[in-house]
Each structure stands twice: as C-alpha cells, then as structure tokens.
Simulated assay, not measured.
Amino acid sequence: MAAPSFCTRAFEWNSLLLSRSLVMFRSGPWPLVRGRLRAPLSTLAWYQMVLKGKGLGKPVTEDFSRVSILEPGKPRSREELLKLLETSVIRRDDSFVAINKPPGLPVAGRPEELTLLSLLPDLSQKLDLPQDLQVIRAAGKESSGLVLLSSCQSTIRDAHNFYIQSRSAKQPTATYYAICTRIPAALEGNICTYLKMMHVEGFNLVVPVASPSHRSIKRKEVKNTLTRYKVLDSREGCALLQLQPMTVFSSQLLVHLTLIFSPVLGDHVYSARVGTVLGQPFLLPAESTLPRTQILEESLLNRLRVQQRHVHRLPLHLHLHRLLLPAAGSSSSNSVLTAPPPPFFLKTLHLLGLTFPQETNKP
C-alpha cells in the first residue's frame, strides 16, 4: 500500500473538522571500549543492560523505582552536566567522537549559556579528547540523542558531503524515536508541507504554509519539508513512532506530528496547536497559538503517575537514536551509529506498556 501524503491535506482535514464543529556500530555487541575510551559502569552501561539484557523486542521490565520521568526542579550545574557527559561519550576514535546528549542541553548558544560546546573544553581535558572538535550532526536542544563530532577536517568535509548527497537521493540518514500522545490515523506514511519561521509575540515559531508563493520559495523564506514516520507500537491512545526526516528544518518533527494530530509527549511549544472537540482532534491556527505547558488527558496522567501541575517538568520524548555514517577507507558499505534512549524515556515506555521492535544490523 502506498504511503499517504500529508502535504496540504492536513489543512483540508483541519477545515473539514472545524466545519463540523469538531552509540555504536551495529556490527557486533555493544562495546564499552571504542578507540581509547573505556566507560565506567554508569549511565552508559545501565542503558545497555536494559536494551541488550532485556532485548529490544521485549517489554521493559527493569526496576524503574529510582528513575523519574520529570526533569529536576532546578537547572543542572556545570559540574553536574560535566559528570553526566563524561558517561555519555559512546564513540571515540581517529574519525569521530559521539555523545549521547541529555534533553534540555543546547549544542550551541550565547556565551553566557551552558551548552555542549561551552562544556567541551573541560570535557576534552578530562577525557583526553581533541580540543578542536566540531559538530557534524546533533539532536536539538530539547531532544536527547546523538551528537556527532570530529576534529579531522577531511572527515568533516566527507561527512557533510555524504549527508547532502543522501538528502538529494532521498535516502534517510537519521532515525528518531518519539512517544506521542495520540495514535496517527495511518500507521505509516509521509508528512510533507511547507514550513517557515515566524516571530509571534516574542516567540520564534515554525508554522506550516499551505500555499506559499513562488517568490517566498525562491527567497528561501519557505521550505518544502518531508518526514517519513511509522508507528512501532501503540496502546490506549499513545504510540511509539519511528521518524526519519528527509529534509532539515528547525522543529520540523514536532510541527509535522501536530499535523497528524500526534504531538510528542513533553512538547510544550507546538502541542497546543492540537485541540479536541467531542473527542475529535482538530488544528488551531498555528500563527496565533502560543507555546504553553502541554495539557494531558486524565487517563494519561494516571498512567504516567504525574499531576497536571507537574507536566511542565516533563521532558521532550524525542530521541535521535540512529545515524548513518559514510563508508570509511576501502569499505563499500556505510556504518550505523546508535545511542540508546535515556532512562526517563524507557520508564515512560514501561508505564505506557509500549515496547521497542527488534533491532536489525542493516543500515
């Protein structure tokens, strides 16, 4: 069956409803040693004990009594973040350094902000990493998952060329996991729409554009974007989705998922665009719907064992799990780098009764 397209049809569906008043290579077992790095038994090892020991295709049955799905009540200090990042380096060799970034940590920002780049000098000194690391690919600020870095200019150039060529050939190179608060009507498909950045009442927000002018496209004010998605598991109104962005645009995945009425759990920016009338979802105007704490149904709050007044501390359940890397040397096949989801993500799956599919080694 051909995958459905959601280009401008999402807007047509919205109008209809309103009118009705409604990190490692997968060539072998997870190594705790890559290059010169040997990780202690900590967060990294804990991830692997859950994912490998229990099996990705089985329900997560680990004791999560000490794991919270809520972010700390106060921001982490520089020392706390450094300690966390020390156990989050999942690959290190002559080509790449890969970090499994926690949610809420921006990769870059203003000089006075705590960012991954501002922490890298101290982290490099502690772990004897190169001092001139540059970011190649990275999960967004609120997302968790892979950050790919390198200090080798030829490696950086080859990687950038590889990702550009892959996008031109419509070959996905990044795979995300997302826990969503609704199950999409179609269990797999493509979400395609034009997006643009708008400044709305002090917020820089990404909004879909139904019929952009040729002039706005030519000026690159509007970009045509595409995401492939697939429901991996669902239960009682919630779903675990696999997402593969085929284009690159800020907040693309979050905005696309609102168009199929399936906001990501912990999305306190764009989830407000999905409203409900008589149990049926509809889209509110993106240009006038401002960010707010996500509103969850009572049944979902009970399953998560949280109260609505604490939902603002719920982290974004969007994880950059997998990156395709260019073939190295004489190798003719590309490699796959993976980073397991953080403990809070796994506990949420456990609370919702969702499970991962069986992983494969194929790029």
Rank of each mutant, 00 (worst) to 15 (best):
A3T: 03
T8N: 13
E12M: 12
W13A: 08
N14Y: 07
S15H: 06
M24G: 08
M24A: 06
S27D: 03
W30T: 07
R38F: 08
A39H: 05
P40G: 09
A45L: 14
M49W: 13
L51P: 01
G55W: 06
K58E: 11
F64I: 09
S65V: 11
S65F: 11
S68R: 11
I69M: 11
L70A: 04
E71Y: 10
E80C: 15
E80H: 14
L81W: 09
L85A: 13
E86F: 00
R91T: 02
D93T: 08
D94E: 15
D94F: 13
S95R: 01
N100K: 05
P103G: 06
P106V: 09
V107E: 03
G109H: 12
E112S: 15
E112D: 15
E112W: 15
T115L: 13
L119T: 06
L120T: 10
L123K: 05
S124Q: 01
D128K: 15
L129W: 07
D132G: 12
V135H: 09
A138S: 15
S144N: 08
G145W: 00
G145K: 02
S150F: 07
C152D: 14
Q153N: 14
D158V: 01
F162C: 03
S166T: 11
S168R: 11
S168D: 04
A169P: 08
Y176F: 09
C180Y: 02
C180T: 02
R182Y: 04
I183F: 01
L187G: 05
E188N: 12
L195P: 03
V200R: 08
V207Q: 02
A210R: 15
P212R: 06
H214L: 10
R215C: 13
I217K: 09
R219W: 02
K220E: 12
V222E: 11
T225R: 05
R228E: 00
R228H: 11
S234K: 00
S234M: 02
L240R: 03
L240S: 06
L241F: 07
L243Y: 10
T247R: 01
V248P: 12
L254E: 00
H256E: 09
L257N: 04
F261V: 03
P263I: 04
G266L: 00
H268N: 00
V277K: 08
V277Y: 02
V277A: 15
G279A: 00
S288V: 09
S288C: 09
T289Y: 01
P291Y: 00
L296E: 03
L296F: 03
S299L: 06
L301C: 03
V311A: 04
H312V: 02
H312W: 04
L318E: 03
H319D: 13
H321Y: 14
L325D: 00
A328Q: 12
S331H: 14
N334R: 00
T338N: 06
P341H: 02
P343G: 03
F344P: 07
L351H: 01
T355C: 12
T360F: 03
